[in-house]
Design a protein around this nucleic acid. Structure first.
Lengths: 114, 114
DNA sequence: ATATATACCTTGACAGGCGAGGTATGTTGT
DNA sequence: ACAACATACCTCGCCTGTCAAGGTATATAT
């Protein structure tokens, strides 16, 4: 049931941004949310997740701050910026275009009519 | 209008196999077919195309033979094998699964209901 | 003590896409 | 004759995102 990583590649950032649109969150929780949303079929690998956070933060799409938990492990929270919201919209639009293109190019017959 | 290469990654082989299901063809022609199908919005880069042919041939999904043109540049034709047809079906199924997953994970609200 | 869950992080390898370059044939324009 | 372009193939080396493997630290349960 696991999904090929090449099919996810390029969507990691969109997935994270979509998650943060629902409110600030942190790495571990975001990954658990993904697991739950997909009925335990898919989760991002930690290394993938954290490198994506770095990219998004460097690009100005998100910013981070340490939580002030006084118990348990410390958490680094992420928040989506205005630029991040615009980036999300752009990526979603691109996904819509790409989806149609891939459907068209990989179906038998080639362009929707035999 | 150009599509991000990370969104195409992992689909190159499916696109080629889909094309070969319509009959034997060769690199240059396949790429022109893709261009035409997408209304000049997308084409595979040559380096991408030819490395994909190598992978597919090594995997036994396609085989190749030289055309016997007695004029113009020589052409290497590719033909899909039985294994290749099965591989195509597998990749299409995975695409269906991945598409649903990505839609679910990147939409606002997260799982289709607010 | 040991295991498990929570929570973070980095390093190095790997694989696919692609820019840049190369080869060769045939046609069309000047 | 020569240039330019279309057809048609190919390889090398870089770049980027993923991920296995390893590490750190806190809290709870057995």
């Amino acid at each position: 049931m696991s999904i090929a990583s090449d099919l996810i590649r390029g969507h990691t950032e969109t997935i994270i941004l979509a998650n943060l649109l629902e409110g600030d969150s942190y790495g571990y929780k975001i990954n658990k949310a993904i697991l739950q949303k997909t009925g335990n079929n898919f989760e991002l690998k930690e290394a993938t997740l954290y490198t994506a956070f770095r990219r998004l933060e460097e690009a100005g799409s998100i910013y981070s701050y340490w939580g002030d938990e006084n118990t348990g492990a410390r958490r680094r929270y992420y928040s989506i910026t205005t630029a991040g919201k615009a980036e999300y919209q752009k990526l979603r639009d691109e996904w819509g275009t790409a989806k149609d293109l891939i459907d068209k190019l990989t179906e038998i017959g080639g362009q929707g009519n035999e």
